[in-house]
Design a protein around this nucleic acid. Sequence first.
DNA 1: TTGAAAGCGGTACCAG
DNA 2: CTGGTACCGCTTTCAA
Lengths: 341, 341
Amino acid sequence: MGDERVTIVDVANKAGVAISSVSSALNGRPGVSDVTRERIIRIAAELGFVPSLRGKSLSGRRAFTLGLVLHRDPDVLELDPFFGGFIGGIEDAIDPAGYALVLQISAESDRVLQRYDKLAADRRVDGVFITDLEVDDPRIQLVQRLGLPAVAINPGIDFPIPAVREDPEAGIRATLRHLVELGHRRIAYVSGRADMTHSVQREQAWRSGLLELSLAPGPVVPGDFTYLGGASAASTLLALAEPPTAVMCANDLSAIGLIAQAQHLGVDVPGQLSVAGFDDIRLGTYVRPSVTTVHTSPRLLGRESGRMLVELIEEGAVADVRIPDAELIVRDSTGPVGAGR
Amino acid sequence: MGDERVTIVDVANKAGVAISSVSSALNGRPGVSDVTRERIIRIAAELGFVPSLRGKSLSGRRAFTLGLVLHRDPDVLELDPFFGGFIGGIEDAIDPAGYALVLQISAESDRVLQRYDKLAADRRVDGVFITDLEVDDPRIQLVQRLGLPAVAINPGIDFPIPAVREDPEAGIRATLRHLVELGHRRIAYVSGRADMTHSVQREQAWRSGLLELSLAPGPVVPGDFTYLGGASAASTLLALAEPPTAVMCANDLSAIGLIAQAQHLGVDVPGQLSVAGFDDIRLGTYVRPSVTTVHTSPRLLGRESGRMLVELIEEGAVADVRIPDAELIVRDSTGPVGAGR
DNA sequence: TTGAAAGCGGTACCAG
DNA sequence: CTGGTACCGCTTTCAA
């Protein structure tokens, strides 16, 4: 009942061998005969020996811990569609490798940098994930300066550190084609926060997609990925002299806000206005009309980035990964132009 | 540029003292003269010395890490209002004390137990948080058996391990009074998952609150805290021979689902049906009508439980805490009975 | 007041 | 193949 923790010494004693042999046997290193190894393994199991992570960390110079610092207002995290799946995916990959995830959340960006700094200074983690990349993100320099292994999630192209990418372009193109097939020609855009790279990416994809279809990009309303941002964009767009017949939003949450506000203003969706989002959050399937969107895979993104970070730490290098493209999912918020109500 | 990490030995050498003196000086322990202490502190700062967490962990028998294992389907986590604030609150409390949080998410409950087990066996964490308590939750026995310090969040009364509580009763009572003042007499309830203690608590509070007001508890529809659960409850309730004029829901998400479905069925909220939720999630302020609810404080709950767990670990004991009661917030989804449309 | 030394629980090298 | 031992970086006890 006390603190009789079984250590490697106990195993060595009971097996009548040196601790070094126990270590080698249990870690599958050469230098022990098969019979000895078997015996050691058996005895270790009998004794319920679990190697101490602390001892291993100190001697092995690894913490077996990875860090994720979210730059969010914790109170807003509630609506974030990304992190449940993403974190779940990370674990799928790192837990079997013996790593755990330390999560931190900070609202202010200075604080975020401080925390990466501290994680590194304490040697608390062996590597970090970098999500929500901003344009000229200072964290990149930081991890490079610190020599801290890091994997970036959805950065732009030509990135200086290992990255996983899920390309939004194909999905956005498909959405535009879908809208054009329905007869839409004036397709507006509600953007995300201009300082975030995935926001920039999505908007560019929208713009170039339209140009490819020989259409002029419609009005762009600045948004911020929030429900309220979408709602206010609805008011803006519907007050135009020549309102668009369709709107793409940088994410589902703003699409849902936009739809709600449009309905409130007496505009039928999709009868008078088609709306598409991005992310495929669950809520989008619940609301009426359900939201046409581009499906992303946070879990897969998490899984791959977890795998990559472990590999980077253990092998010293890792290749970039691109997961399958995000795909269009047509639901009820998009329909033929001029179906009116 | 290499791995020239500054250790306690470097500081000792440069200061011309023994490492034990450095340790004492830096940790504010007695046994060093003030001048020596000052000099050591200055030199440590000059050298940029940061004590290694690994060394400390091994010798100090503490990992300076706390664990939170969520029993959720990661893919569903996206809409959970609780965890952003809760985790933020935990950090508010533990980060200054030098602790970090390891987060794990598992969909199956066996797996959850395994992970607590492993966290303890590895000595990866010094203590754990236990949220989402279930009736006869097996985790309680587990942590007791493992001798793992733990703090429970919102368990029932008379609980065997330290706990933080935020009482829902007062808020639910206030909601009922509010509805009765508006003229409602048939007040239904959409419950949460029956196996969770806070679900049971809330339903009991609703029942006893009504009895206190000398009203018969209205129909109860089993729900599951989800949007869809709320939506289906709407269909059930509105199909009754004598539908209720008001509904309380176990949480906001189901209230929002219920409202949406009621509207879809042509029932005006609050004109023909008043609806109240619980939690005060952000989404509830966006939807129309905005949702009358009971405000909870995940962040404060997190902060207190973090503080408690650290105290439990460092002092060996800690008193239960009750944070201020959850409070009624009246919004637009509740109104006078029979206001019709 | 100060310093030497014994752990904490492993890994890894090296001689036997 | 095996065992002894130095070491990882810190805390803590105990002499000096």
